[in-house]
Computed example of a mutant assay.
Amino acid sequence: MNHASATSPGPDVQNRVPTLHVSLSRVGVTGVEKIIRLEREGGQQLFSAELECFVDLGPRQKGAHMSRFEEDVNGAIGEVVLGDAAFRAETLAERIAEIVRERQQALRAEVTIKARYPEEKPAPVSGIRTQEIYTMLGAAVASEHGTRRMIGVTAQGMTACPCAQELVAAKARERLGADFNEEEIEKIFAAVPVATHNQRGLGTLHIGLPEGSDVELDATDLVAIVEESMSSEIYELMKRSDEGTVVEKAHRRPRFVEDCVREAIRGVIDRYPDLPADVFVSSRQENLESIHQHNVVAERFGLLGELRQEIGSGDHLPHHTSMREWLDGAGRPAV
């Protein structure tokens, strides 16, 4: 007679040997929504965040323990939200990745965090306080060799098209030439910005720190780099004087989508001259076109050493280390 209870736990199916012995690159959960506490400018704030969590799966393990992902994430979140300390987004991702790797007995674990947060800043002329919404990004990959982390931000701004501005300026020169000499025309252009069409820009900047790095970067500094890379910052609430200032600033600094990416790279190199060569950098700009039905995108990614080499020599490097390559390189031997 079988005395086993119908509710007795059966064998752990996830630990069975699969029918095909092939490892899986990433197995995990996405769309995990949590309220987390993060460190912000010396204080603490609660954020609404979305998390993703993955592990490598070996060729002889049938599946990951999916229910444990939720337990592991909840445990780490509880430590941060209920404890006295607050962490940066990338540090929280690091904590969760290390816990998940240990509990899942995985070679590697990867966690990403995306949190929306408000920031108050004054309008440029009136000083009226306005709440702007930014996105803070954190990621970490834990392996037996340590944990590499990544911090990132997404911010909005405004760009003015240089090409259309030159076309408008050329026609204006023709008309002004009937009544003014060249010197007078130059004075007019110096005093009055030339019209062009505008775009709202979405800039994203990531900086990745390798295993063992003790460097700490502030998301506020990254936001400043992204906003400065565009023609002008934008503000949710403005008086007329602010609107005029923003529009004039943008038209005096016309930039293509490609210019924004290069300026963000310049901002990282200038602001962080002491970062080592194996730090990863990614800049992405998307402009929402106003006179076209499509949008435009530009990106540059690579190790900081690669970027410095290309800037110094002016020669194109045939290979740019991608974010996926950099993340996947954690704890894996070079081929």
Rank of each mutant, 00 (worst) to 15 (best):
N2K: 08
H3R: 15
A4H: 11
P18C: 12
H21W: 09
R26P: 03
G28D: 07
V29Q: 15
G31M: 11
G31D: 14
E33M: 07
L38H: 03
G42P: 04
G43D: 01
L46I: 04
S48W: 01
E50H: 10
L51Q: 12
L51H: 10
P59L: 05
K62D: 13
A64D: 10
E70H: 12
N74T: 04
G78D: 03
G78L: 00
G78C: 00
G83C: 07
A85Y: 11
R95E: 10
A97D: 14
V100S: 03
E102C: 01
Q104M: 02
Q105N: 07
E110Y: 13
P118E: 03
K121E: 06
P124R: 07
V125Q: 10
S126G: 08
E132G: 00
I133E: 14
Y134K: 08
T135S: 12
T154W: 03
M158Q: 14
C161W: 05
P162L: 10
Q165I: 00
L167V: 10
V168C: 02
A169I: 01
D179N: 13
E184Y: 05
K187Q: 14
F189Y: 12
A191T: 07
V192Q: 03
G201C: 13
T204G: 02
L205K: 01
S213F: 01
D214W: 03
V215I: 14
E216W: 03
D218S: 06
A219R: 09
V223A: 04
I225A: 01
V226A: 10
E227G: 03
E227M: 03
S229D: 09
E233W: 08
E233C: 11
E236R: 14
M238C: 11
R240W: 07
S241F: 04
D242W: 04
T245W: 15
V246W: 01
E248F: 01
A250M: 12
H251V: 02
F256D: 10
F256L: 14
I265T: 07
I265G: 04
R266C: 00
G267R: 11
D270N: 11
R271N: 00
V279L: 02
S283L: 12
S283G: 12
Q285R: 12
H294I: 15
H294G: 10
V296K: 14
G302F: 04
L304D: 05
E306F: 05
L307W: 09
L317E: 05
L317P: 02
H320N: 13
M323Y: 09
A330R: 11
G331E: 06
R332Q: 15
V335E: 14
